[in-house]
């Protein structure tokens, strides 16, 4: 039996990590840029997240059960070390470094959210029969969202135009609507309803914020507001990825496909 405090610490870690992703989009070497001071807090938040990650993973390692979760924890520590090495390089950093740092941060956040969710499980799952298509959608959604996050990161750091990222938004919408609606309208998947509604809400916010940001480029808008919306978009992108990963795990936990279960 894991301590409820481990779960609470993991949730706190997830919140700090999200704040770190949010402020990471404001990091700049120029003090004249709006939200420069918020970008400066990124280092403090990242250090806090790194220390707490190590603490949570060590706590997790000392508790019984959950080999896969412990492995994920060790991977998270490796990612923290990698992020520290890359992130502490002097500004301005070359694009490859910035892209790697941003993409790894989003993956690390997903791993932390998974740890936070899984450490909160107290009882065995109530399983229900489901289709292999739901399983497929559940597994594919995080991959598609990860690709979209990568496209967004490549756009934000000047490697690609916005076109592929915009097309990606429509592909994402298809997968996320497919997963969430397949669950929400089936009473037997009631265990998944909260996660599905949360994913749908987060993804909707992300698409709305993204389209707002895109339309702001062609309007005479305060540049500070554009930067703020960019930061929100980066943070909700990380949340969307984490939500799809959690959804995929929950589908695997709660849904069985008759043929494979036999």
């Amino acid at each position: 039996m894991r301590s409820p405090w481990l779960h609470r610490c993991a949730v706190l870690l997830a919140v700090i990590s999200l704040a770190s992703v949010f402020t990471g989009a404001a990091v700049t070497g120029n003090p004249e840029r709006p939200y420069y001071s918020l970008g400066q807090t990124h280092l403090c938040l990242s250090i806090a997240a790194g220390v707490l990650t190590i603490a949570v993973v060590l706590w997790l390692a000392s508790s019984r059960g959950g080999t896969a979760l412990r492995r994920l924890g060790w991977s998270a520590i490796a990612a923290v070390a990698f992020e520290a090495v890359v992130g502490l390089q002097p500004l301005p950093q070359p694009p490859a470094l910035r892209i790697t740092h941003a993409a790894t941060a989003e993956l690390l956040f997903s791993a932390i959210v998974v740890i936070a969710v899984c450490t909160g499980w107290a009882e065995p799952p109530k399983r229900a029969e489901g289709s292999s298509f739901l399983r497929f959608l559940g597994n594919a959604a995080p991959i598609v969202v990860l690709a979209q996050v990568a496209l967004g990161t490549l756009f934000r750091h000047g490697v690609l135009g916005v076109g592929p990222h915009l097309i990606g938004a429509f592909v994402i919408a298809f997968f996320i609507l497919g997963v969430t609606l397949s669950v929400i309208y089936k009473p037997e998947h009631s265990e998944l309803h909260l996660a599905a509604r949360s994913l749908l809400t987060i993804a909707s916010v992300q698409v709305f914020v993204g389209l707002t940001l895109f339309s702001m480029q062609s309007m005479d808008v305060d540049p500070g507001l554009v930067i703020l919306v960019t930061m929100i978009h980066a943070a909700t992108g990380a949340l969307t990825l984490a939500a799809t990963v959690v959804m995929a795990i929950l589908i695997r936990r709660h849904v069985y496909v008759p043929d494979s279960a036999a």
Partner: peptide, 12 residues
């Protein structure tokens, strides 16, 4: 005049 780009934070 400090020049900035609201798309790319590293530009200065």
């Amino acid at each position: 005049v400090p020049l900035l780009c609201n798309v790319h934070p590293e530009m200065s």
